[in-house]
Simulated scan of single mutants.
Amino acid sequence: MGEVAFTGHTCSSRPAMLVRACRTLLELMQARRERSRVRCQLAAMTERELQDFGMSRSEIERELGKPVRRK
Results as ranks from 00 to 15, higher is better:
Gly2Trp: 07
Glu61Lys: 05
Cys11Ala: 13
Arg20Tyr: 12
Arg32Tyr: 13
Met55Ala: 08
Val4Pro: 00
Ser12His: 06
Gly65Asp: 03
Val68Gln: 05
Arg23His: 13
Leu42Val: 04
Leu50Ile: 01
Gly54Ala: 08
Phe53Trp: 02
Arg14Trp: 02
Met17Lys: 07
Arg14Val: 02
Arg23Lys: 10
Leu26Trp: 10
Pro15Lys: 02
Arg62Leu: 11
Arg32Ser: 12
Arg69Lys: 15
Glu3Ile: 08
Arg62Val: 06
Val38His: 07
Arg57Met: 06
Ser56Gly: 09
Glu61Trp: 05
Arg33Ser: 15
Leu18Gly: 04
Arg69His: 13
Thr46Ser: 07
Asp52Glu: 13
Arg62Trp: 09
Met45Ile: 00
Val19Lys: 08
Ser36Cys: 08
His9Gly: 06
Gln30Leu: 14
Phe53Gly: 10
Arg37Gly: 00
Phe53Glu: 03
Gln51Asp: 14
Ser12Phe: 12
Gly65Val: 01
Thr10Pro: 01
Met29Lys: 10
Arg70His: 12
Cys11Tyr: 01
Leu64Ser: 03
Arg14Ser: 04
Ser12Met: 11
Lys71Glu: 05
Glu49Gly: 01
Leu50Thr: 03
Leu64Asn: 04
Leu64Asp: 03
Arg32Gly: 14
Met1Arg: 09
Gly54His: 03
Met29Pro: 01
Leu28His: 10
Arg14His: 03
Met1Thr: 05
Met29Tyr: 06
Met55Phe: 06
Arg23Pro: 02
Ala21Thr: 11
Val19Leu: 07
Gly8Trp: 02
Thr10Cys: 02
Arg20Thr: 15
Leu42Arg: 03
Ala43Gly: 07
Gln30Met: 13
Lys66Ile: 00
Leu26Pro: 04
Ser58Thr: 08
Ser12Thr: 08
Lys66Asn: 06
Lys66Met: 05
Ala44Ile: 02
Lys71Val: 02
Gln30Ser: 14
Glu27Phe: 11
Glu59Pro: 01
Met55Gln: 07
Leu42Thr: 00
Ile60Gly: 03
Cys22Ser: 11
Leu18Met: 09
Val38Ile: 11
Gly65Leu: 00
Glu3Tyr: 06
Met1Cys: 06
Thr7Leu: 08
Gly8Pro: 04
Arg69Glu: 14
Cys40Asp: 13
Glu59Asp: 05
Gly54Gln: 07
Thr7Val: 06
Gln41Val: 14
Thr46Pro: 00
Val68Asp: 10
Met17Ser: 11
Leu64Lys: 03
Ile60Ala: 02
Thr10Val: 02
Gly2Asn: 07
Glu63Ser: 07
Thr24His: 14
Ser13Cys: 09
Cys22Arg: 08
Gln30Glu: 15
Ser36Thr: 15
Val4Asn: 01
Arg23Ala: 15
Asp52Ser: 11
Ala43Cys: 03
Val68His: 06
Glu63Pro: 00
Leu64Met: 08
Met1Asn: 07
Arg62Gly: 08
Leu64Phe: 00
Ile60Lys: 00
His9Glu: 12
Leu18Asn: 10
Gln51Lys: 09
Lys66Asp: 06
Ala31His: 09
Met17Asp: 14
Cys40Glu: 13
Arg48Ile: 01
Ala21Leu: 13
Glu61Arg: 02
Arg20Gly: 11
Gly54Lys: 02
Leu50Ser: 10
Arg48Pro: 00
Ser58Met: 07
Gly65Trp: 01
Met1Asp: 10
